[in-house]
Design a protein around this nucleic acid. Sequence first.
DNA 1: CCGGACGCCTGTCGGC
DNA 2: TGCCGACAGGCGTCCG
Length: 271
Amino acid sequence: MPELPEVETTRRGIAPYLVGARIAGVVVRDPRLRYPVPADLPQVVAGRAVVDLRRRGKYLLLGLDDGTLLLHLGMSGSLRVLPADVAPGPHDHVDLILDNGRCLRLRDPRRFGALLWITGPAEDHPLIRHLGPEPLEDGFDGSYLYSRSRSRRVAVKNFIMDARIVVGVGNIYANESLFLARIHPSRACGRISLERYRRLADEIKGVLRHAIGQGGTSLRDFVREDGNPGYFSLSLNVYGRANEPCPICGTPLSQRRIGQRSSFFCARCQH
DNA sequence: CCGGACGCCTGTCGGC
DNA sequence: TGCCGACAGGCGTCCG
């Protein structure tokens, strides 16, 4: 559920409470996430100082003075910083107790998220190593998408949601950026011109930046670190708007499954 | 290599 | 009201 803007919003929100603090302890109420929370995590991590909090794609990397905590929010995860004595609710699976009286609490109803302790450079870890470029950095542009897509026939929407191609673009922002670039989501990615990929790369950057500025998109589960929702939902042009009028031409928006994911688009504006 | 399908989970919503 | 299937923001894996 959280895509790049939601993860980045979370990172910015919690970093001030974490960086410079020390982890006093870890409470694991339910270790059954996508990968089991390691049984020895509390003893391994207790006493470690938090050095930094980085993001790579949709992963959060909490740098410690020994190793790194790798976090992923899956479809339904959220992180909040709370006074350590606030009683946990349902699906509050893990607390990192800090030495400043607060705790970082991971809630994840569907348990598709992850919390792992890794050693060595995070960029060498198997879950990170294969990831493509960050969409908001210079290595990502229209000519990159163009060159990676030649002689491929997969739908462009699946192409830009492939983390090996570019990280952080999930179902919401794939739909939105394709609408803004006026590209039909099921068009074969190898049959799109360089010019159109330049436009698409620009729209991906723009929509992600705008969403970060709005604190992300809250539809169901996502809350910011302070418990408030993000407001980008108000800016969605097509996502979740089947049969509503296209903001450009007024034609009712279409909804179709592409690659097992709901896709929203204007059949008239997008080709 | 590529493309497509499938689980992993729980909660919610719409239709009957 | 209750039940049941469909669907939900991700992603690694498996198969042809």
